[in-house]
């Protein structure tokens, strides 16, 4: 019964958060100074006609509360509206972007988790040694560098050896065979995923290091040592397993951001994902695309938080007590 209570409470909280976020997303862009159709109407020889036509077409001539009600109503029917820029359905556009973003960000995030956990455990296990210093300091540096700086440096240093633009070099008029296409995409993915890995792994290293250090001082680890268990077994089976609890939240949060894409990385490497789409939508004031993008981001972050709560509940019996 207690478990059901917990789940219901968490789920209700998640739903309310989503609703508040939808409302905020709607009004946030509209309180900014400026007009959504000014830029779109900047076509020579278009002028007043176009500005008016677009304002009416997008319903921007209606009061804001009415626009909001229409938006909510359409959203409940699964309609995210059409992009102001190219007048195509937002859901369709965002789906294409998501398909491009998810593989790159997943590879980058998974790699950063693996590298982060490994270096964190290493640093904790060999606390105070040269390996600890190198690993911890590198992690702090990588974590501190701004993404855009790191991305640009990698681009400048490596772009003559690795592709640095988009997802493919499809200059052929006959379609590439599947494996060749896959290799092409994988090659293009190296630089953006590497940037993501470098900017994200540091936090894992630091969290894992602290957490493993804590568990290494616990009595049961001492007991394990006293029993004469091999050190590797002590670290991985006894210390790391128990130290991973804080990682659950961190990983869940990072996975929530996967669908949000890595905005700056996508812009630097022209990766045609959801981050680049959001960037373009901001500069072009494409409200429906912004609302759609933020909605997906909000829902996924909240959903993954919810899942991490549930996992926590399962992993840590203290919560249900």
């Amino acid at each position: 019964m207690r478990r059901a209570d917990y789940v219901i409470k968490r789920a209700t909280f998640a739903l309310i958060t989503i609703f508040v976020a939808i409302t905020l997303n709607f009004f946030l862009f509209r309180v900014l100074p400026g007009n959504a159709v000014t830029d779109l109407a900047r076509v020579p020889h278009a002028g007043a006609n176009l500005k008016h036509a677009l304002t009416v077409e997008f319903g921007l001539d209606k009061p804001k509360w009415e626009q909001y009600l229409v938006y909510l109503k359409e959203l409940f029917h699964g309609n995210m509206g059409v992009s102001f820029v190219n007048q195509q359905p937002v859901s369709h556009l965002l789906l294409t972007d998501l398909k491009n973003t998810v593989p790159m960000v997943t590879v980058g995030t998974l790699a950063s988790i693996v590298v982060g956990v490994f270096t964190g455990v290493l640093a904790a296990w060999r606390r105070g040694s040269l390996a600890d210093h190198i690993s911890t300091n590198t992690a702090i540096f990588a974590y501190a560098f701004p993404t855009q700086w790191l991305g640009l440096m990698l681009l400048i240093l490596l772009s003559s050896h690795l592709p640095s633009n988009g997802m493919t070099w499809e200059f052929l008029f006959s379609p590439e065979p599947f494996w060749q296409h896959l290799a092409d995409v994988a090659q293009h993915m190296i630089l953006p995923a590497l940037t993501l890995l470098l900017t994200a792994y540091g936090s894992y290293t630091l969290v894992v290091r602290t957490s493993v250090l804590e568990t290494l001082g616990e009595d049961y680890v001492l007991t394990a040592r006293a029993k004469g268990l091999p050190p590797q077994r002590i670290v991985w089976r006894h210390a790391v397993r128990n130290a991973l609890l804080p990682m659950v939240t961190l990983i869940a949060l990072d996975f929530g951001y996967i669908v949000g894409g890595a905005l700056l990385i996508e812009v630097i490497f022209s990766w045609p994902g959801i981050g680049l789409a959001m960037y373009n939508a901001v500069t072009q004031r494409d409200y429906p695309m912004l609302q759609g993008g933020f909605l997906i981001l909000t829902v996924s972050v909240i959903l993954l938080n919810f899942i991490s709560d549930l996992v926590y509940f399962r992993l840590d019996p203290r919560i249900s007590e």
Binding site: L152, L155, I156, S159, S160, S164, N165, G166, W169, E170, F171, F173, V267, I268, F269, S270, L276
Partner: peptide, 20 residues
């Protein structure tokens, strides 16, 4: 035979692609 137009969001990347 044709034109292949490639879009760049970063001009430095575009110039590097030309050079390479």
């Amino acid at each position: 035979q044709g034109i292949a137009l490639e879009f760049f969001t970063n001009e430095d990347a575009m110039v590097t692609a030309l050079k390479s």
